[in-house]
Structures are given as C-alpha cells and as structure tokens.
Design a protein around this nucleic acid. Structure first.
Length: 423
RNA sequence: GUGGAUGUGGCGAAGCGGUUAACGCACCGGAUUGUGGCUCCGGCACCCGAGGGUUCAAGUCCCUUCAUCCACCCCA
C-alpha cells in the first residue's frame, strides 16, 4: 500500500454506512418532530469567521485549524465546527427577517488538526441544532430534551447530563476577578498551563484535569454565586424545566465550554465507557455570537454531538439492531451462452423495475458457486435460467429457506416472487 | 506538540538468531460432470510496515523512519 488515507480520517465501509444512514434517519425524524430544518453551509469558510466566532484564544483556533491560502490569496479554513457557519448564514441570508425563532440543524464532516485517539479524529462528523432568536429558558430545555430523547431512542444507557451557567458579560467579570483573587496567592503551585491560563482565560482553570490544580481549586468561588439576577433566574428556570421533563442532571460548577461564544447555559452529555473522550454531546447558549459577527444582538442556543462517538457507544453497549439490505432473488444461469445470459439479464431488469432487489452472477461462475453466492447474499429465492426449461419459456424458482422448487413461466416469475413475498 | 504500546498473507494469530514462515477464518476449486447453507479434500506469502546496520546466518538483535492504537492537552 503506497498511498493510504490521511492520518485521523476514516473510510466508512458499506457495513458502517448502513448504520450511519439509520442514525441519520432517526435524527431527521426527531428534527421534524421538534421543528428543526436543515441548513447546509460550506465545508470551508473565511478563516476570519472562526477567529471571530469561535474565539482567537481557543485551542481550536490557535492550533487545530486546517487553514490554507487559495489561488486568490484568500485565507480559508476547513470548518472545525458548524455553529459559526450557521450564525454567519443566518446573518448573511437575513434570516432575522423570518418568523423567529429560526431553528436549524446540520450534519456533516468537521476538521481539526489533533493527535488522533479513541473518539477523536481529524475529520469527524457532527450533528447539531441551533435555535436563533429566543432568549427563553424553554429553548435551552428544548434542545437538551432533544438530545436526551435521541439517546433514549437509541437505547443507550448510563449517560450523564451535566449543566452549568457560565454567566453573561454583565456577571462573568465579577466571578473572574473573584477567581483570580482566590488563586493569586498559590499561583506558583498550579500546573504550567494553568499559570498561563490565569491571565488569558482564568475560567478554563476550573476544568483542568490535573489533580493538583483541582485540589488547589477546592472551595474556589463558584460562578453560580456570582451570577446576575437575570442569569440566576434563567438557570433555575432551565433546571425546573428539566425536572418537569424528568431528565436527570447534575450541576457541575466546573463545567466550562472550550469555545468563547458560550453564555449562560452550558451542558455536556457524557459516557465514560467509550474512553477518555467521553463527551457525546455538548452545547449551550451563545447570546453574543451573532453580534460578534456583526449582527443585531440575537439570543441563541445549540448543541453538537459527535457521530463517531455515538457509534463507539452503541458498540460498547452491544446495540446492533440495524437492518441490513436483503436480496429478494438471485438469478443463476445454467449455461454461459448468449441466449441464457441475455434472458437472465432481462429477467433481472424486469424484477428490479417491479421493485424487487435482485442480482445475477457477473463472474461466469459455476452453478454451484452461484448458489453459494446467493446464500451469502441471503437471497430469498434463486431463479435458475437455462437448459430444457428455458426452451419451454420457463425457469426453476427455488426457495432457499425451505429448499422447495417450482417451475414457473418466465413472464410469471415477477408475480410469483411478489406474491410469495407478501405472505 | 509530549508520553506509552504495537506493526507477520484479505482478517485473526504462532514463530523471538539457523532447513521449503505454523494454525484458524475468509476466498477460489473439487467430492460420478444442472443446485446453496453441514462435512471432507485441494489451492492461495518474491517484499514478515519501510530504510539502514550487527552476524557465517535476522520477522527474530541494534538504529532510523513511517503508520496504527491508547493517553496527555483540548474537544463532539
């Protein structure tokens, strides 16, 4: 093998894609029920969109973007996520002029230059939904309920939902200062990255994985204690709604999302058993994003979920009830002469026109080998074309499950198979 | 970017310095020549990730490199 696929990418083979299609169908059905409509944005965007939308200090922008210059000297970037694009499209297409809120969904590949590991790839796939134009906690609760329902329908168990409020521009600075005051005296004891974060983005210190840092942060000021009245009320309303929906959750004051655009509600759904990258869904409110991109202030909430991680979860829980494609009839030929082959070819076409899934041998194999192939394809029937029967305009139709066989005139085979299939 | 593990036929997997590199699965063919799923028989590796080196002799030891997996960082 001289050329292989790029690092961190995957080939999804037919056995995988049937599963993808079914999961995607489930998601589209849910979207229809919840009133979300699909948007498809470009795979690449102006680099500036992500710098402004996702945030210039985030890891995504600083070290994970696939950025290139095109022949017109424009700096473009393969999308690392889809929320910024959706917001851009909302603005650019003046969707603020539509009846609000605007509820959109997307699914497709995203690109981040990271070291691959379990549940992490350089090209990965997300499904996400966004509600533009509503500041109501109902919207927050609605999308969380959407995600929860999705995992329920898949049959996944043991998921944990964590929620937090990261405040808004009015109250976040208070907490930030309180946190800095708290850490300042012991700053040299924190890990190197946290010391770095202290100035640039102290909130990120909260979800540092280092046990040392976590120890030092015991009893640190919680954002929840510094929320302004508006954020406090919003957060408690979201909790009430989740309670009303019977959705279990934990409040995690340390939950801080890695993208700059989040405000108020932040949430994450995780499943530890799939590895270190256990977050299967993450999202929250981003009331400042649209205005950051140059639009009128537009409150918005959304989430994204990782498709590959869903498959990892399904696999680890042994959930594999995906139906596979079946073959209704396999057309086998007795002799490899032109008349037989043409008859078989025409028969196959006629059966397909009638909506039956059928295949014929394309390798000039022996009859025995053709039967083996029919068996592998799990065909319900094998039609044997050729010999004496063909000269009488008939063919043998064999039921592979019970090994019964009948002689049927060629022109009746289609109906014969359809009637048998209806039983 | 850092650390750990691994790299033998399409897949799984023995071999750990010395004749023609086990075995299982899959695949192809056959078992009185027009019929499958079971069984039996046969077939299927020029390169043991790649490139150097040590040795009379190297998948088997050493170095380099690449890839994969896992973990850190961070995220879906």
């Amino acid at each position: 093998m001289s050329v292989t696929r790029p690092r961190g990418t995957n080939d999804f083979l037919p056995e995988d894609t049937v599963k993808w299609q079914q999961i995607e169908k489930l998601l589209r059905d849910l979207c229809a029920e919840y009133g979300f409509q699909e948007i498809r944005t470009p795979i690449f965007e102006d680099t500036e969109l992500f710098v402004r939308g996702v945030g210039g200090t985030t890891d995504i922008v600083q070290k994970e973007m696939y950025t290139f210059t095109d022949q017109g000297d424009r700096s473009l970037t393969l999308r690392p996520e889809n929320t910024a694009s959706a917001a851009r499209a909302y603005l650019e297409n003046k969707m603020f002029g539509l009846a609000q809120p605007v509820k959109l969904y997307y699914m497709g590949p995203m690109f981040r230059y990271e070291r691959p590991q379990a549940g992490r790839f350089r090209q990965f796939h997300q499904f996400g939904i966004e509600v533009f134009g509503s500041s109501s906690p109902l919207a927050d609760a609605e999308i969380i309920a959407f995600a929860w329902e999705f995992y329920n329908r898949l049959g996944l168990k043991g998921l944990s939902l964590q929620i937090n409020s990261v405040g808004c521009p009015a109250c976040r600075p208070n907490h930030k200062e309180a946190l800095k005051d708290f850490c300042r005296d012991n700053l040299n004891k924190f890990c190197a990255t946290c010391q770095d974060r202290f100035e640039r983005n102290p909130l990120r210190m909260l979800d540092c994985k280092s046990p040392v840092c976590q120890e030092l942060l015991n009893n640190s000021p919680e954002i929840i204690d510094h929320l302004c009245p508006d954020c406090t009320q919003h957060f408690s309303k979201v909790q009430e709604l989740l309670d009303a929906a019977g959705i279990p959750y934990q409040i995690n004051p340390r939950l801080v999302r890695g993208l700059d655009y989040y405000t108020k509600t932040a949430f994450e759904i995780s499943l530890k058993e799939i590895g270190a990258q256990s977050a299967v869904c993450g999202g929250g409110r981003y009331d400042g994003l649209i205005s950051d991109l140059g639009g009128q202030p537009t409150p918005s909430v959304g989430f994204a979920l990782g498709m590959e991680r869903i498959f990892a979860a399904l696999k680890s829980q042994g959930i594999d009830h995906f139906c596979t494609q079946n073959t209704d009839a396999y057309i086998a030929v007795l002799d490899q002469n032109e008349k037989t082959l043409t008859t078989a070819f025409k028969l196959a076409l006629a059966l397909r026109q009638a909506g039956l899934a059928c295949e014929q041998d394309l390798l000039a194999r022996s009859l025995k080998a053709q039967f083996k192939q029919a068996d592998r394809l799990n065909a319900a029937y094998t039609v044997i074309v050729g010999g004496e029967e063909l000269s009488e305009g008939k063919a043998q139709v064999r039921n592979l499950a019970n090994s019964s066989q009948e002689l049927v005139p060629l022109e009746n085979i289609c109906n014969y198979l359809k009637e048998s299939g209806d039983k």
